[in-house]
Amino acid sequence: MEHELTHSDAAHPTHHITQPKVYYIVYCWLILLMALTIGASYVNMGGGLNNLVAMTIAVIKAVLVVLFFMQVKSGTRLTWMWAAIGFIWLIFLFGTLGDYVTRNWISVTGW
């Protein structure tokens, strides 16, 4: 049958329980990454690269928290979608930067 006549969008609604071992491992990674980000901030790689490294590490930490602590990894497709959508819309919001980047570009006479 193509459409299951149930209330849910999800195919497998049974609840998944993450084991404590996973939490501990993720926690260790988080602490490690935090140490790394502090360390990296004292190494001068040139402003841009430093920022990139710091933000990449922060994003990795956030993803770890979202996937494991917040159990999105074992979540349904719907949970995935809603977990992702906020971060996607942040990109739209940060489109505002486009204005600030282009403000000092060459202007057209009479504008």
Binding site: T37, S41, N44, M45, N50, A58, A62, M70
Partner: peptide, 19 residues
């Protein structure tokens, strides 16, 4: 956990600005 994530970003942005 969300509150935690916010801090994960706040910490490097305010305390660790590279020179």
């Amino acid at each position: 956990h969300f509150v935690d994530i916010v801090w994960i970003f706040l910490f490097p942005l305010f305390y660790l600005i590279p020179g």
